[in-house]
């Protein structure tokens, strides 16, 4: 290549000039042209500045912590709780159970915040009535936009309305109602086989919830049963949440 390079030839070689793809002779010709041509010198300097700045761009941060949304989607196997019923119940002091439930409640609220945000940012605020999935142990009616109390279906709650079962129902009922409505939309996108699997898992969990409540009605001071009920609810929330985020 001639050592007297013009601008057109220089620009044709520019990409390789910048990134090191030229042989020594061509590179020297480019350097010579650049040294004597103000326009090409400026062009190289500008592109160099762009590359240099791009390499040192600061890392942007998301608008909110994304972990809760990620954690909600991490796969959690749904285990049939019936198997656990046959195991010998460990002795759990009631105070410890309540401590765990308090922690679970905080975790639920925290994790659900991301889901709630996801649901509410694109959907108008409406009164949500659970539908689509078959009725379950704790059908509830709840407004997304208010703190209206959860209304449990009469006759489904076996413990005292001020007892621990009621507290758990209240804790999870509102979340489940909202998630179920959104989950219906997700189910509509799945094939029938998958919907069948989901429904069977929900049935297993609902059975566990029902049996735990019946057992609690007979033995309301059992910390173990209370914990079992809480875990069953937790599994249900987790399954619905994953459905929503499909």
């Amino acid at each position: 290549m001639s050592s007297h390079m013009d601008c057109t030839t220089f620009e044709a070689s520019l990409a390789d000039f910048l990134d090191g793809g030229l042989d020594e002779r061509t590179y020297a010709a480019c350097e010579q042209h650049r040294a004597g041509c103000a326009a090409c010198h400026a062009l190289v300097s500008d592109l160099d500045a762009i590359v240099s700045t791009a390499r040192s761009l600061p890392l942007p941060a998301p608008s909110h912590d994304l972990w809760s949304g990620i954690e909600a989607r991490l796969e959690t196997p749904v285990l049939p709780l019936d198997a656990a019923r046959d195991r010998r119940a460990p002795v759990v002091p009631p105070t410890m159970v309540w401590r765990r439930l308090a922690v679970a409640a905080v975790a639920l609220v925290t994790v659900s915040a991301g889901v709630t945000w996801t649901l509410t940012r694109s959907e108008p605020a409406v009164a949500v009535v659970a539908q689509g999935l078959p009725a379950e142990a704790t059908p509830v009616e709840v407004s997304v936009t208010t703190d209206a109390p959860v209304t449990a279906t009469p006759g489904t709650r076996t413990a005292s309305s001020t007892g621990p079962t009621f507290a758990i129902d209240t804790l999870y009922g509102r979340e489940i109602a909202m998630l179920r409505t959104a989950a219906d939309a997700s189910l509509g996108l799945l094939d029938s086989t998958t919907v069948g699997v989901v429904q069977r898992n929900l049935d297993i969990i609902d059975n566990a919830i029902r049996e735990s409540r019946e057992a609690l009605a007979a033995d309301p001071n059992s910390g173990f049963l209370l914990e079992q009920l809480d875990r069953a609810y937790e599994r249900k929330v987790d399954l619905l949440r994953r459905l929503v985020l499909l």
């Binding site: 000039f17 160099d48 500045a49 590359v51």
Partner: peptide, 29 residues
Amino acid sequence: MHTLTVTGLVPDQPHRHRPSASAVAQASF
């Protein structure tokens, strides 16, 4: 002619051997 005001720019450095990777720009979470 106006020159660029970009941190780290060395206008007349050779361009033949640019690194294949850049460093992490700033600390992560």
